[in-house]
Design a protein around this nucleic acid. Structure first.
Lengths: 339, 339
DNA sequence: TTGTATGCGTTATCAG
DNA sequence: CTGATAACGCATACAA
């Protein structure tokens, strides 16, 4: 408690060198003799010294901190999109390896990305997870551009926009739906927002549509059910399909949460999964393996995503050019699609 | 990019006051006239000024930052204990409300809590989530005491140890097992580590034992199956019980993850849940509502937990006395226990 | 209520 | 390779 922290001057005195030399030695500057470096480290250890990061950050240009801003308010049960959880974990891990501290903040979706984290020199750059729709995204992005701090956003991948990193949504959906067709399914419902205001979901819809087309199946609007990322929405969407008398033998959902809701709704209506209806989701939440039947899904690679995000941000911080990244997905076959 | 950040001197010049006055005005010091405060805020807004947090942290004693250290390596599928996720979310939210920044870090369980975060004046205090066992805990705690930085740990509640905040594990378990007995279950298996090296689980075991005792049921070692917090462990534990021919009509697991694994293993062996075997878990992960049947469980109140953790830490930082906190749990009845 | 002066603990720029 | 010395941007004791 009361013990005063030692400063680099204390180390200098103990090691018999100047304070400047201590600083150099501790930051592994090449311009310091092995002999002196050793003395400094020993003194530091002896006094239990560590650098005051605040002084360092004040003085140096780079701050070695990344801020992760997560938009919350997904729904009641899931204040944050569960997919973000392993993604955040991967970011924490990889950023840590790269020597970055990570500040994490939950934000109301309505809040501006730039308000809290702009300008304060808290972080060198921002990683953004989640936005409500494309308009919301654009508005927030503009706020960020104004403050000039580097940022990357997870989700949509825009050609030419280096700050965009996302899964290969179209391809992932294409593979999932192709698999369903290969299993003999012909009437495949699509659960999700296909509107252009949700580009990621739109991409998944495009993959869905392409798979149908290439297999000579026609698109049927009766099989489209709008829903957002929640179990309740998925259940409601399936209920709507059934109420309107749509016939379907498979469901492709744009996220695992609605897929799980869909399975539960189907089972409640006495339709067996996968015998009567195949179900495939998107994300591969860990809970996907806990449902009965276990959920087949399109896995998003959170490790690769985290690397891409942090690397992109790191390059932007260093003022290097950055390309948008599209992270490959992988189809995970469990029980819910039957084979 | 290249635009230089304005400093408080720039604001001072624009507002026609001294830098010190700017500082006072912006930190809402009472000793500044309304008139001047207004001018300062206008100037700040005009120049898009925000305080450099690093300079502030260097200069002032308190740095308004909390570090959350999460021990990882739970198992392959779950690099971090899923229960920590909503807890972290609640901490981020509440700490944000209280004006704290939050640094989050994943650590190998083997790592020392103090190594990275001690001394560097990154944070005013530490919140610790997860430790391997009691020995591990003690070792880490000692390291922390050495550095003298305030810390609180989630988990066990030690009388007199203000840095300990946890659920009322014994009571939660007691209520769950009592409920099973009320449903007519008589042979209730306990899944978890009951050893004294895992105090939280030991408390849950004590609650289990008390419920049996008070209802005239005897403890039977045949119904105890060691397992840690993972689906695989839960499944394996049930398999062991069955292999050794133990008869049981209910399972109480010390966490949802093994409870889910147990359900899956039971179903795979053709035993119906809840008709043949009731199952209750502990935590109330969101995934508990996604299983079939939906999992009954003892909910840990992450919101209250987060408040308790942050409040305790806040008091320690302010050098005020702190009492250990035991957060109440709530039994959530779903389908897996049948009633 | 406001201004002046000082220092927080580093890193960076110069000399030597 | 090392040592003075000057910032970094703010908060605060003290004086007015």
């Amino acid at each position: 408690m009361g013990v005063k922290r030692p400063t680099s001057f204390d180390i200098a005195a103990l090691a018999g060198v100047s304070q400047a030399t201590v600083s150099r030695a501790l930051s592994h500057s090449p311009a310091v003799s092995e002999e002196v470096r050793k003395r400094v480290f020993e003194a530091a250890q002896q006094l239990n010294y560590t650098v005051d990061v605040n002084a360092r950050k004040l003085r140096s240009k780079k701050i070695n901190t990344i801020a992760v801003l997560i938009s919350e308010d997904l729904d009641q049960d899931n204040p944050i999109n569960p997919f973000f959880v392993p993604l955040l974990g991967a970011i924490l891990k990889y950023a840590g390896q790269r020597g970055y501290d990570v500040l994490t903040s939950l934000q109301q979706q309505s809040a501006s990305w730039s308000n809290d984290y702009g300008f304060a020199r808290r972080a060198d750059g921002l990683i953004l997870l989640g936005y409500k729709d494309y308009d919301d995204y654009v508005r927030k992005a503009e706020g960020l551009s104004d403050i000039g701090e580097p940022w990357v956003v997870w989700g949509l991948v825009q050609p030419g926009a280096g700050h965009s990193v996302g899964s290969d949504n179209a391809q992932g959906a294409y593979e999932a739906v192709s698999h369903l067709i290969r299993l003999g399914r012909r009437r495949i419902a699509f659960l999700g927002e296909a509107s252009s205001s949700h580009p990621e979901f739109r991409d998944r819809y495009d993959g869905y549509a392409r798979a149908l087309r290439e297999n000579g199946l026609s698109l049927d609007d009766d099989l489209l059910a709008d829903c957002f990322i929640s179990r309740e929405d998925g259940a409601a969407a399936v209920a709507r399909l059934m109420t309107r008398g749509a016939e379907f033998d498979a469901v492709f959902a744009t996220a695992d949460l609605p897929a799980i809701g869909a399975m539960q709704a189907l089972q409640k209506q006495g339709r067996r999964v996968p015998q009567d209806v195949s179900v495939i989701g998107f994300d591969d939440l860990w809970a996907a393996a806990c449902t009965t039947p276990a959920l087949s899904t399109v896995r998003q690679d959170t490790t690769a995503a985290a690397r891409a995000l942090v690397d992109a941000l790191d390059r932007m911080i260093a003022n290097e050019p950055v390309e948008p990244v599209r992270v490959p997905t992988r189809l995970i076959i469990r029980e819910s699609c039957g084979g």
